[in-house]
Design a protein around this nucleic acid. Structure first.
Length: 761
DNA sequence: CAAGGCCATAGACCG
DNA sequence: TATGGCCTTG
């Protein structure tokens, strides 16, 4: 115990040893929040206040959950397997597997990732003959997900007009389709669990009594449903230990509600609010810069980071002529750093949007500096892997129409659009799955469909007693996926990924403790007894930490869940000493000795779209705050007068955020006013500002050219298009064009030297 | 059924 | 600039 608390500072110690009541920990960047969380858990267990089965710890990412588990194992001599530490989705999956019957789900329910969800929606719209121009699948998906994220079923959504009523109706039909097919989307995992527990009193009380200590990481990222979920889980007596930082709330766009922090304080009757303001990461000038910037936000819970590390170096600011020049300058600096002995992997280049990485990558490639780009496609999202997974899904749940359609004709086996149309008609007529509808299709189409069914059933039968990894191999062969890619010219990578899928299965089986030779399917007896808590035959038991709950899950089901819930590495592999490139969003939670924040221009950072969103600029500022606080020792900020974007040159103003930094902590490496080759100049003041109410007031200062002062935000009148407003101005020295929004005539791109425009207002 | 051409589009992200 | 979706054509 002594050594457990030994290295904590006063604030951390206070947080770790709080009484068993709900508490809010405001944990600043680099203040040791993960440490506080894990030590809190260890302390609760070690002091006998709870056993390890009484703890529920929730995170947003698998990475965070893994890290927490690993640190905890290092702290306590306990087996962390079976502990309830996981993501919201992972924990819900676990609960739904254990209580699938009460939740109204089939035992082999499968999880749709967002790709699957979108294709399920497209498929539904097609079947219903809905005009997908009028009701775009993406919009419907967004509509459904945000309703679910607020805990609303279709019947709970108030439709303002006919258009919205259609969305509500489609939402309802989508849910029915999912239910029929035995699939759940991500939001459904949470909503279904929430409904299960609110409806089922004994179950609710069981878990409320069990989890007396609930710990939540990154609380500022919770959405409305997650908040309600936590409230339900905690019940009247549970203690929720919420750790978060309102200044690092950067996910409003996916439903996160920072307001949950103050709601939590109020509704959970928080008596202890502890601020962790001691920063162990960054030098003084860097922290001062972050503090001063974020002070420009209103509605903060209030927090100021401090450090004992001393001022350190000032923040270096550099202005360049072009994005190319910016990249080259950065590379020069990187080379110098490396020559001075800074580790390559301790240097990060951050950008606001992915499109910015191209120039940087190109320049890095030319100078032969090893680098790694975060983001991009993940393992289980690759097409070939998804195909293989779909075969497995279909074998585990024959009624998964999404999986059926994905592979019924891949690799091609002569089942075309006509055949599928017949099949879908039959399925509709008999209200059954595509699989079940096959016997109703006659003729040539029927026989090729039958051959496909034989393929799936044959593979299913033969792999019955096979361990998972053998089953995967069999599927790759039987489906002819392997031979298909072998004959493809550029299939080598895909083959490699498919081989890696076999390794992933092997690894999964051994890590989850199934036993390498346990069959992938549950035996028939196990299936029959599922949900009773008793296992028979060769069923696989997943025994919970307190042994009170036995979940029956086949290795195959578990692996398929794993594939959906952990799409795999989305980030650069560790190992090689390489420079790190990533967006600011994906840098959250990481830290580096030296950081470059690039492209600090109006329209880019803050991003132009943020002007239209309520509170958008404040979120951009928090994003900037996150970026700054990634740096330990050295921080660079760069911006460029011109930038290639979508194939045309844009002339941007420097970011308003420069005006919000403390003079003493920054150092301009380029002179403050750089002469422009073509009379453009960066305006020293912010181009457009957000007013708290409207949030989208573009008061813009553009540029000045040949005495005609067209500026962004200028009202204009045109003979044909009527009145409009200048939204953006661009040019390449030769001609100058303006994007003008003419309302009902839409957006026009006009040459300012040609178009006859008058100023209005 | 697959390949090739045309057009629109362009933000950040995890499960 | 580059990618994805859709349509036409072989």
């Amino acid at each position: 115990m002594q050594n457990l608390l030994h290295n904590l500072n006063e604030e951390q110690l206070a947080a770790v040893t709080l009484p068993a009541q709900s508490a809010l920990i405001l944990a600043g960047a680099g203040s040791g929040k993960t440490r506080v969380l894990t030590t809190r858990i260890a302390w609760l267990i070690q002091t006998g206040q709870t056993s390890q089965s009484g703890i529920l710890a929730v995170t947003f990412t698998n990475k965070a959950a893994k890290e927490m588990t690993a640190r905890l194992s290092a702290m306590l001599p306990i087996n962390t397997r079976g502990m309830w530490i996981g993501t919201f989705h992972g924990i819900c999956n676990r609960l739904l597997r254990a209580h699938f019957k009460d939740a109204g789900l089939p035992q082999t329910f499968q999880i749709l990732d967002s790709q699957d969800q979108l294709s399920a929606i497209k498929r539904m719209l097609k079947a219903l003959n809905v005009d997908d121009e009028k009701y775009p699948p993406r919009n419907l998906m967004y509509f459904i997900n945000s309703a679910k994220d607020q805990g609303l079923r279709a019947k709970d959504v108030d439709a303002a007009d006919d258009y919205n009523r259609k969305f509500v109706e489609l939402y309802e039909l989508y849910d029915q389709q999912c239910q029929r097919e035995g699939v759940v989307d991500f939001a459904e995992l949470l909503l279904r669990t929430y409904e299960l527990l609110s409806r089922n009193q004994p179950l609710r009380e069981h878990y409320q009594a069990r989890f007396r200590h609930i710990l939540v990481d990154e609380f500022q990222d919770t959405n409305d449903l997650q908040y309600k979920w936590l409230k339900l889980m905690a019940g009247p007596h549970g203690a929720v230990f919420a750790v978060g930082d309102d200044d690092q709330s950067i996910y409003a766009f996916r439903g996160a509600n920072v307001g949950n922090m103050s709601a939590f304080e109020r509704e959970f009757k928080v008596e202890n609010l502890i601020k962790l303001e001691q920063n162990y990461r960054s030098h003084g000038h860097i922290l001062d810069t972050a503090n001063e910037l974020i002070a420009n936000n209103s509605k903060r819970l209030g927090k100021n980071l401090r450090t004992d590390a001393g001022h350190g170096e000032q923040v270096r600011i550099y202005e360049s002529i072009s994005d190319l020049a910016e990249a080259q300058w950065i590379i020069e600096q990187v080379k110098n750093l490396i020559a001075e002995g800074w580790g390559r992997s301790e240097i990060a280049i951050l950008y606001r949007s992915n499109a910015q990485s191209r120039v940087l990558e190109h320049a890095l490639f030319s100078s032969a500096i090893p680098y790694r780009v975060y983001g991009g496609q993940r393992f289980f999202e690759r097409a070939e892997v998804k195909h293989a997974i779909a075969y497995l899904q279909l074998m585990d749940n024959l009624h998964n129409d999404s999986a059926f359609l994905r592979v019924v004709n891949f690799p091609t086996r002569g089942i075309g659009a006509k055949a599928l149309e017949q099949l879908q008609d039959a399925a509709r007529q008999y209200n059954c799955s595509l699989y079940a509808a096959v016997p109703y299709v006659a003729g040539k189409a029927g026989s090729s469909l039958n051959a496909f069914i034989k393929l799936i059933e044959g593979a299913r039968f033969e792999s019955q007693h096979m361990p998972l990894q053998e089953m995967v191999k069999l599927v790759l062969e039987r489906s002819t996926l392997m031979t298909h890619y072998q004959s493809e010219k550029e299939g080598a990578d895909r083959i490699e990924n498919l081989e890696q899928l076999v390794s992933a299965a092997t690894l999964f089986v051994s890590e989850e403790g199934f036993g390498l030779d346990a069959p992938a399917f549950l035996g028939p007896q196990a299936l029959a007894s599922a949900g009773t808590g008793i296992t028979l035959g060769d069923g696989i038991e997943i025994i919970d930490a307190d042994a009170s709950l036995v979940t029956l899950m086949s290795p195959l089901s578990a692996f398929l869940s794993h594939a959906s819930l952990e799409a795999g590495d989305n980030q650069a592999q560790a190992g090689q000493d390489a420079l790190q490139l990533m967006t600011v969003h994906s840098a959250k939670g990481l830290e580096f000795d030296a950081v470059f924040i690039t492209g600090l221009e109006e329209g880019l950072f803050p991003h132009e779209n943020s002007a239209k969103e309520e509170g958008g600029v404040e979120e951009e500022r928090r994003l900037m705050y996150v970026a700054i606080t990634r740096a330990r020792k050295r921080l660079y900020m760069t911006f460029s007068q011109t930038r290639m974007l979508h194939g045309q040159t844009r002339y941007n103003l420097r970011s308003r955020f420069f005006d919000e930094l403390p003079e003493d902590s920054i150092k301009w490496l380029s002179s403050k006013v750089v002469k422009q080759p073509n009379s453009w100049f960066a305006h020293p003041k912010a181009a457009w500002v957000e007013t708290p109410e409207s949030g989208n007031n573009k008061i813009a200062q553009g540029f000045n050219r040949q005495g005609s002062e067209w500026r962004i935000g200028q009202g204009v009148a045109h003979a044909k298009f009527g009145e409009g407003v200048i939204v953006n101005i661009e040019g390449d020295g030769g001609s100058t064009r303006a994007h003008i929004n003419f309302g009902k005539f839409g957006m026009k791109l006009l040459d300012l030297s040609v178009a006859k425009l008058e100023k209005v207002g």
